[in-house]
Computed example of a mutant assay.
Amino acid sequence: MSDVTVAERAGDRLSGSATGSEDVVLVLPNAVAVLDGATSLRPGARTGGWYAARLAAALEPRLARPEADLAALLAESIAAVAAEFDLHPGSSPSSTASLLRWDDEQVEALVLADSPIVLDAVGGPVAVVDEQLDALRAGAPRAGAGGYRDRLRSGGGFGAGHRAALNSAMDRTSRWRNVEGGFWVAEAVPEAAEHAVRARVPRAEVTAALVMTDGVSCGVRDYGIYPDFPAMLAAAVRDGPQAVLDEVRAAEESDPDGVRWPRSKRHDDQAMALVRLAERPPPGGTSGSGLGKKDLCT
């Protein structure tokens, strides 16, 4: 038996053409997909949210095929959306893609770009984290990420000047999308799926899993609300996913101008899926929850 609880909340809109959240969560009887459409500052019908919704629709029948390899079905889905809507590399909207699938034998996780998955496993927690964008940002000014962040640190705020600085950073970062030495993401290049981070754990050893967009993972990676992903998962299991979203949003509201935590938006879209796969061992058992153990990035 499995139980899936989803929590979502829209963030700020940087483009007047988009309404609601650009995050998409797909829930199937034996799988979950979480997609984060990339924000664009250029108004248009084909936003990151538009793309994420179409990719989710393409993934739905393919994820239902238990024999299909996760990377292969993601590549098929990327190719199908590109063909149906005549999308081309470099000019297509894009999205992260995080897939979790389970059966009686195993739990599989795949992460492409910055929407992490964390598994509560008997042998120790497993965090599936794609760090390509982190590496790219560490190479600023090549990635163009320093300008708007430095501006926010100095008190520039999220007004028109921020949009201009962010637009410049996005333009420079986009040149490194789906190229060697850059970062890989779902867009119009099916081969991007081959660069995803993956993990496979026996089903009997996994009690819960958390799949999230970076509007939630920032609670660990940027704000330090939780010391690591296992601690965030423990909080979600204990208090529910919505409570985790509330904590992240409260941290952002305490820093309304992005001085403490420079970021692209005051509030990003948030999406999280908590999957409970099994009951925990009874009190006094030897295996415990595993949530206190060291985080493992696969």
Rank of each mutant, 00 (worst) to 15 (best):
V179R: 08
V211E: 02
E252Y: 02
R263E: 11
D103V: 12
E279S: 15
V27T: 15
D255T: 13
P282T: 08
A231I: 03
S154H: 05
W184Y: 11
V248A: 08
H195T: 03
L87N: 07
G157M: 03
L133H: 07
L41W: 06
R153T: 06
D36S: 06
P125H: 08
E67A: 15
F183H: 06
S98L: 03
E191Q: 12
L14T: 14
W176A: 13
R238Q: 12
P281G: 13
S17T: 15
G290L: 02
M1P: 13
D222E: 15
I117R: 02
A208K: 04
R149T: 06
L99W: 01
G258R: 08
P29G: 02
S2Y: 00
S289L: 10
V237P: 00
G161W: 00
N167M: 10
Y226M: 08
A145Q: 08
T19S: 15
A193Q: 05
A71E: 13
D269G: 08
L119A: 04
Q132A: 14
A83F: 01
G144V: 07
S15M: 13
S287T: 15
A97D: 03
A165Y: 04
G139Y: 03
G155I: 04
P282C: 06
E108W: 06
E253T: 14
A64G: 12
V259S: 03
G44S: 10
E253H: 13
V24L: 05
H195K: 09
N178T: 06
V111E: 08
W50F: 07
L26G: 05
G157Y: 09
A236F: 01
R177A: 06
G123L: 01
L119F: 12
G290S: 10
A64C: 09
E180I: 08
P89W: 01
V197R: 14
G224P: 06
S15G: 12
A52W: 02
R249V: 10
V216R: 01
P241G: 01
R175K: 14
A188Q: 08
A196T: 06
N30Y: 10
D134T: 14
A79T: 11
K293M: 13
S289N: 12
R203K: 07
G181P: 12
G11S: 12
G48V: 12
D257C: 03
L119Q: 04
A109F: 01
A68S: 13
G215E: 01
Q242P: 05
L14R: 14
G16T: 15
G292S: 10
A186I: 03
D3S: 15
S174Y: 00
